[in-house]
């Protein structure tokens, strides 16, 4: 279908311009992250970081490493918990189809529509009573609510496609349901595990509302709060702010480069769900 006629390359040209326009703010973030303080308010602004500086990135190394570490740990915890909760549920809904399953799917769908601010307020009230405000497990638990309904959805959709014969064969061989799940279903569901893990990590990494309400006053603050404090302190060191933003964007970039297939799968499956 794709032919390299002049007309097609002409379209590539337009495509490059459109993509460039869409990504310009991202370029600008990178540009500003290298800009020296004294050039920051230059008029007109420098379009390229000539006389660039690494001061912004030095500030990240000096000040933001603990935040990045917290975000990383919270992300990992969220991934593990999300997959552990969502994969068995997906298997049951797709293959065991218990009575009440459709009702549960419906509840999951509704759960996704609850605004984060409402969840945050409820969590705050509960965490205050339990004394788990500003703790890593508390933040991990809250962040999983961003990904668990999506995870069940993806797993259900994917595991429906596993041939019944494959599962029956294992059962005939005398494997228990739990063993079938562990040694047959999970290994062939690798793609969906990757997809769910990627999104769970990305969403917990990007989370701001739970971080600011449930972890805003403690020692375990994620990178989103690191950036927020920078802006909030009326910091004029925009190269440091933007350098932190660049570093905070790395997981998204890695995800897109390494796992583009899974990303599109996740976006469309999340959108066109039932």
């Amino acid at each position: 279908m794709t032919t390299s006629t002049p007309r097609a390359w002409w379209k590539t040209g337009i495509g490059l311009v459109l993509t460039g326009l869409m990504l310009f703010p991202v370029y600008w973030m990178i540009n500003v992250s290298f800009t020296r303080d004294q050039d920051m308010r230059a008029n007109p602004p420098h379009l390229f970081p000539i006389n660039g500086t690494l001061d912004g990135y030095r500030a990240v190394l000096d000040q933001q490493l603990p935040y990045l570490g917290t975000s990383f740990l919270v992300g990992l915890g969220t991934v593990v918990l999300t997959v552990a909760l969502a994969a068995p549920a997906g298997y049951a809904l797709a293959k065991l189809r218990p009575p009440g399953g459709p009702a549960l799917s419906f509840v999951l769908l509704i759960a996704q529509m609850i605004p984060g601010i409402i969840m945050a307020m409820g969590f705050y009230a509960i965490y205050l009573t339990l004394g788990v405000l500003n703790t890593l497990p508390g933040l991990i638990l809250a962040d999983t609510t961003l990904a668990v309904p999506f995870g069940v959805l993806i797993f259900t959709a994917f595991m429906s496609g596993i041939p019944d014969e494959l599962i029956q064969a294992a059962v005939v061989d005398g494997a228990s349901r739990l063993r079938t799940f562990w040694s047959v279903v999970l290994p062939v569901s690798r793609n969906s595990i990757v997809t769910v893990s990627l999104f769970a990590f990305l969403w917990s990494w990007s989370d701001f509302i739970f971080a600011s309400t449930l972890a805003g006053g403690g020692d375990h603050q994620p990178i989103t709060l690191g950036i927020y404090h920078y802006i909030g302190n009326n910091n004029q060191q925009w190269n440091a702010i933007m350098a932190t933003a660049v570093v905070a964007s790395i997981p998204a970039a890695v995800l897109l480069i390494l796992a583009q297939r899974y990303v599109s799968m996740g976006v469309t499956a999340g959108a066109v769900k039932d």
Binding site: T12, P25, S249, L256
Partner: peptide, 24 residues
Amino acid sequence: FPLSRTLRALILVPWLLPLIVSAS
């Protein structure tokens, strides 16, 4: 057209960035 897949993937970037990054 040539490169359409790659460019389409690149346009996803704004959606994947943490909102605080885009907002700042």
